[in-house]
C-alpha cells in the first residue's frame, strides 16, 4: 500500500519536473522561463521527496523519511529566494522583457541599463 502511494507521488513529481523543463525551453524570455521552471520544478521535487518520505516511514527506514522531510523544508525556503535574486539580477543586468509583455512599472523606479545585445551562440 505504501509503495502505491509513494509511486503515485513520485510519478506526479517527475512529470511536473518534465513540464517545468519544457517551459524552460519554450517560453520567450528570462522572467517567464524563471516562473515556469521555479514553480513546476520546486513542486515536482517536493512531491518526489514526499514519496521518498512515505516509503521511508512505512518501510522501516526512519532516517530516510526524516531527512526527506527536512530537505522539503530547505527547498521550500531556498527556491523562491533564489528565483527572486535571479529575477532582480537579470533585470539589473539589462535583459529586456520580450514581445508579448504588456506593462512594466518597475522601469519607473529602476531604469534599466542600456540594452545588452543577445550573445546568440550557434553551438548546440
Amino acid at each position: 500500500m505504501s509503495e502505491i502511494i509513494a509511486a503515485i507521488l513520485i510519478g506526479i513529481g517527475v512529470l511536473f519536473n518534465l513540464f517545468g523543463c519544457i517551459g524552460l525551453v519554450r517560453f520567450p524570455d528570462v522572467y517567464t522561463r524563471l516562473q515556469a521552471a521555479t514553480k513546476c520544478v520546486t513542486l515536482g521535487t517536493c512531491l518526489t521527496l514526499g514519496g521518498a518520505a512515505v516509503y521511508g516511514f512505512a518501510g522501516g527506514f526512519g532516517a530516510l523519511g526524516m531527512k526527506s522531510l527536512l530537505c522539503i523544508g530547505f527547498l521550500v525556503i531556498t527556491a523562491p529566494t533564489a528565483a527572486h535574486a535571479l529575477a532582480r539580477g537579470a533585470y539589473k543586468y539589462g535583459v529586456k522583457l520580450k514581445e508579448p509583455t504588456v506593462v512594466d512599472l518597475y522601469q519607473q523606479v529602476e531604469p534599466q541599463p542600456t540594452s545588452i545585445e543577445d550573445e546568440e551562440t550557434e553551438t548546440a
Binding site: 523543463c21 528570462v30 521552471a37 528565483a83 537579470a90
Partner: peptide
Amino acid sequence: PTAPDRTVAIDI
C-alpha cells in the same frame, strides 16, 4: 542566449 538564461538553467 544571455547569461541570466544560463544561470536560471543551472539553478533548475
